[in-house]
Design a protein around this nucleic acid. Structure first.
Lengths: 244, 244
DNA sequence: CGCCTTGTTGAGCCCTTTCAAAGGATGTGG
DNA sequence: CCACATCCTTTGAAAGGGCTCAACAAGGCG
């Protein structure tokens, strides 16, 4: 299929994955886009494994993930660990309106992460809309995660998660050929999906053999996302009438 | 231990479980309290099993659960079912600020439920604060649910959930003698905790034998909540510096 | 090149599910 | 007040999915 790119559309797309994703969330004014691009241009770095937010700490100003992966996590005192959600380029950390006093979960960097303060939305309906939509998506993904953990078996959980990541990374432009970088160890994947790394390993092998996915060298490819979606019984996440 | 009740404190407590719970969430003005009490006095009824909100529908105005239990639920197309969260007296349904276009999950009545429109908070900082805190608690409980499903075994899940319900029903005044009404079938409990009703049954029996809980005739008693909390490794949920 | 993290594999066990059926409650109508 | 239907709880036996423990291979990285 051939797709024409109008000159106007290209200008809206954003120059980095994070801004591409944010631009897709709402109808932003030129000023909004400029301020997002500017903010993303001078990010801070959080190294792998470093805590970005600590559970129970007072909330700092909201931030945007410019690049890299982070996750919200909860630790049990016997050492068990559960990841609650992923934070991907263009996602917001700590955005609550109205503000909330305490962080509900620790946020930890899964890779080196670049983040920047989120431009103030109080004077911009476009930004406010984008942030709100982002937040709604966060909650939708969290609900999907509950269902995944509660009612899907190991293969379904893996497939469903990979499809979600595919879906979330697409607007940021981080997906090509149905594939994307997956900077997660099998241990981490286990702590996301409520399984052991050993079982993750075996199920990944099975799914590779069955042609559901290709995972090698930190890159994941879903040869046929639609087919996999049918196989694990997944439907697309939507929070408003129009958007993905 | 003897506790003195000052005449002033009593007036703040609210006359129904729902208002008691809401009054405990924020420092409310006399007008706030009056409007909540008034709203709760003319509720609508939703019968058991009836849908209160349908997933994907446009959001109606926010409502307050005056009495009864409801739950957010997601259905898989092969018939599997996962409850996402409970909605108890004093909880809000569909409160989002700023408003969100679509409901993210179906809400269904688990018992006959009385609900009323939530008084408008735009002119009242107290109400706004109460609603915000309620929403923060919702999210905290959702995160706890993820951890429960992902990393706890059957007994821990049951114990943890019962402790959460104990904690949530207490401010509404629905707990006495460490016990409360639990209007849930074992089937429902299974769909909350990601287990089968058969296994719920067996684990409940085990926990009864071990003295962790007493469940009979729809009433649950936790003989020693603190001990059970230690046993399942649970810590109390908090979203702000002061409150429960 | 050697350390350290990550991925792979095997065997056995245990927690949880499945399937089926019986027993108790509860409620409605006759 | 009994008969009957319905829903919920309880129980048994067997199978299965996922876990544990342990050891080994395979990559990065300094």
């Amino acid at each position: 299929m051939i797709r024409t790119v109008e000159p106007g559309a290209r200008a809206q797309e954003g120059t980095t994955p994070a801004t591409r994703r944010l631009f897709a969330l709402a109808d932003l004014s030129r000023a909004d886009r400029v301020s997002l691009e500017a903010a993303a241009r001078s990010p801070q770095i959080a190294r792998t494994r470093r805590e970005i937010v600590r559970e129970g700490a007072e909330m700092a100003e909201p931030q945007i993930i410019v690049s890299g992966w982070a996750a919200r996590v909860r630790l049990l005192m016997d050492g068990r660990r559960q990841f609650l959600s992923f934070l991907l380029p263009g996602d917001l950390i700590g955005y609550c309106s109205p503000p909330q006093p305490l962080a509900l979960a620790t946020v930890v960097a899964l890779t080196d992460v670049r983040l920047c303060p989120a431009p103030d939305a109080s004077a911009s309906p476009g930004l406010a809309q984008a942030y709100t939509t982002s937040r709604a998506l966060d909650e939708a993904y969290l609900l999907a995660h509950v269902t995944r953990l509660g009612r899907l078996n190991a293969q379904e959980r893996i497939g469903d998660l990979m499809l979600e990541l595919h879906e979330r990374l697409t607007p940021a432009g981080l997906v090509s050929q149905n594939g994307f970088e997956l900077p997660l160890t099998q241990e981490t994947l286990g702590d996301v999906l409520g399984l052991t790394s050993v079982h993750i390993n075996r199920m990944l092998q099975l799914m590779r053999r069955e042609g559901d996915l290709v995972l090698k060298g930190g890159r994941l490819v879903l040869p046929d996302p639609a087919l996999l979606a049918r196989k694990v019984g997944r439907s697309r996440i939507r929070v408003s009438a129009g958007m993905a």
